[in-house]
Structures are given as structure tokens and as C-alpha cells.
Simulated scan of single mutants.
Amino acid sequence: MSIETSFVYPGQGSQFVGMGAGLLEERPPLTAVFEHVEAVTGRPLIEPMLHGPEDRLRETGTAQLVLFAFGIAMTEALAEQGIAPELVAGHSLGEFTALVAGGWLGLDEAAAAVARRADAMARCCRERAGAMTAVLATGPGEVAEVLARYPGRCDDGRPGTAVIANYNAPRQTVISGDAAIVTEIGESIRAEAIGAAEPLPVAGAFHSPLMRPAEKELTDTIAALPLRRGHTPMVSSITGEPISDLERYRDALAGQITAPVHWTRTARRIVAHRPRRVVEVGPGTTLCGLIRKIDRRQKAHSCGDTSNLRALAGTYA
């Protein structure tokens, strides 16, 4: 079955100071989205988003909520132009934005869950030094072989860990775990010419066992979420499959922050519907780039500012 448009929502790391400035200036009613999320969570979002400083916007608690609110606001801006998705998906944090955009979860409940998720993850980052590194120009099988050679130990002698956190594209994988071990593995990958290894500017080891305390902390929050059948089909990046059974999906969502992101599988599911366009709703072009790596024939558009919005509206007109 072919579709017209799919929306995809990026995760943490795509934020930058000044994002949303043009959107709020040209479409003042969208300020209400950010103010509503601020009211629900008790967190300032507009000020750090527009003015920073960068270190503050990079903080997990701020970054996740800003990106979540931005995705919802931009979805509303697209709807005002008559642009709505027939399929949605989100990468990591973007899963929660997609749930709201697709009608699977209410805005207030999702905003509160994102705030608790971000806080729990931030505590894990403070308690144990973690890191993430993107491995390029080689496949996940080769990366897994390298990981198997490094059971690793932390600086204090504790057993350490490193795992595949993101299956982003056929030749782009992200590893995550204890900082010292991830650094050592990255150096080994470069030294052995297995691929390129680029450390990511993140606060900790997301989508790894180091987030287990946060997963336990969020168990009751996820169990209480009022998930419902959405008005727009959604592919989960946790499983790479469409959501069908809500209780099975709830179980998957409960383990989302320790489970790997299966974006390659997710993108292939989207592309199988032969959408006329895939729209990355959020700042940056990360997901557009990954989708093109997965299928060069697929048209992908970014929509992170008002110029993108006007250009996209023009293609519909």
C-alpha cells in the first residue's frame, strides 16, 4: 500500500540554540504549545531553546523536552498547511513525539513521561560515566565481533560493558557503554581500519545496560500511560514493527531506554509503503540522511524551520 506522507521525529542530539525562533516569530499561536509543556512539566523551555546557553540546552532534562515540544509544534504548523502524515515513527526520544502525533498518547501524559524519563536518565549519567560512539563505513556484524573481544573493566575495577545502541543504517552503528571501554573500542576500530569511529557529544550511555536504574524507575510511569489506538499508524523504532498489540507495545516501551534503536528496520518498514515523501519533523537532517543511506530512491525532506515549512507547503500546492 502506497502512502503520501510519513513523518519521522528525531531524538536527542539534534537540538541547537536558536531553533524555533523563526517558527515562534511567524506563528505566535505555536508558542502556546511550548507554554503548555512548560506548565505540565514545570520546566522552562522557550528561554533555553532560543537563548541557551548551549550547555544548558545540552542537558538531558532540557534537551528532551525542548525536542518533544518542538516536534509537536511543528506538527501543528504542518497541519495548518494541510500536511498530515499517514504513518509516523520516532528515533529514541522521538518515539514519544510520534505517539502524540499519531494519536496513541495524549500530550499531557507524554510530556510528563518525557520529563520523568529525562530526569531518570540524567541521574544514571551522573552516577556512572558513560559514552557513545558512532561507527561508520562498516556493518553491525563487524562491530559486534569487535565488541565480543572487549568484555572490559571500568577504571575502578568493576566489570564494564559496551553494546550496540543504535542500528541507524546498514553501515552506521552506535555503540554505548562505560566511557573507558567505549573509548578503547573506538580506538581499536580506527587502528585496525575496521571503520571510522566518532565519539558523540552526549551525556551518557543511552540505550545500554547503564540505563537499567532509570528503566526500573520508570516502570510504574510506563505501566500507567493511557495508550490507545491511534488515528495514524505508527512504526516503533524499538521493534521496527508497526504497533498492533498495545500491551505488547507497552512492554517494549518500558525497556526502551536500555534497548537498542532499530532505525534501519524502522526505515525499511516506512519505505516499503512507498511514501511520496518522508518528512523529518524537527531540527537538523539526521533522519533524512539515514533514510537516504537505507534507500537512495526515497525522497526525504527536513522540516525544522519556517523556510522548510514554506518549501514543503509548495510541494503540496
Rank of each mutant, 00 (worst) to 15 (best):
1 M>H: 14
3 I>C: 02
3 I>D: 01
4 E>I: 08
5 T>D: 02
10 P>R: 05
10 P>A: 02
14 S>M: 10
16 F>W: 10
17 V>E: 03
17 V>D: 03
21 A>S: 13
31 T>E: 14
33 V>E: 05
36 H>K: 11
37 V>C: 07
38 E>N: 03
39 A>N: 15
41 T>N: 15
42 G>H: 09
42 G>M: 03
44 P>L: 11
45 L>C: 06
45 L>V: 09
46 I>E: 07
46 I>V: 09
46 I>H: 07
52 G>Q: 10
53 P>C: 11
55 D>K: 12
57 L>V: 08
59 E>W: 10
61 G>Q: 06
61 G>S: 07
62 T>N: 02
64 Q>I: 10
65 L>M: 05
68 F>R: 00
69 A>H: 08
71 G>Y: 00
74 M>P: 02
74 M>C: 11
75 T>P: 03
75 T>E: 03
76 E>T: 08
77 A>E: 14
78 L>D: 01
80 E>M: 14
83 I>N: 01
87 L>W: 00
87 L>K: 00
88 V>F: 03
89 A>M: 08
91 H>N: 04
91 H>S: 03
99 L>A: 02
101 A>E: 02
102 G>I: 02
103 G>L: 04
103 G>F: 01
105 L>N: 11
112 A>V: 06
115 A>P: 08
121 M>K: 06
123 R>C: 04
130 G>N: 11
130 G>R: 03
131 A>K: 15
133 T>H: 09
135 V>G: 04
136 L>P: 01
136 L>K: 15
137 A>K: 13
137 A>H: 11
137 A>F: 09
140 P>V: 07
147 L>C: 06
151 P>F: 10
151 P>E: 09
154 C>H: 10
159 P>K: 08
159 P>F: 04
163 V>S: 07
163 V>A: 08
165 A>R: 07
165 A>G: 05
169 A>M: 06
169 A>L: 10
170 P>F: 13
183 T>I: 13
185 I>H: 02
185 I>G: 03
186 G>P: 09
188 S>V: 14
189 I>G: 04
192 E>H: 11
194 I>T: 10
194 I>K: 13
196 A>D: 10
198 E>T: 11
199 P>A: 06
199 P>W: 02
208 S>G: 08
209 P>T: 06
210 L>W: 00
212 R>C: 08
214 A>P: 09
218 L>E: 05
222 I>R: 09
224 A>F: 04
224 A>R: 15
228 R>E: 08
228 R>M: 11
235 V>Y: 01
235 V>T: 12
238 I>H: 03
238 I>A: 05
239 T>N: 02
240 G>D: 12
242 P>V: 14
243 I>P: 00
243 I>N: 00
246 L>A: 07
252 A>I: 10
253 L>H: 00
261 V>A: 15
266 T>Y: 01
268 R>K: 14
271 V>Q: 12
279 V>F: 00
285 T>N: 08
285 T>D: 12
286 T>D: 13
288 C>H: 06
292 R>M: 09
293 K>T: 08
298 Q>I: 11
312 L>R: 13
313 A>M: 04
314 G>Y: 09
314 G>L: 10
315 T>Q: 15
317 A>E: 04
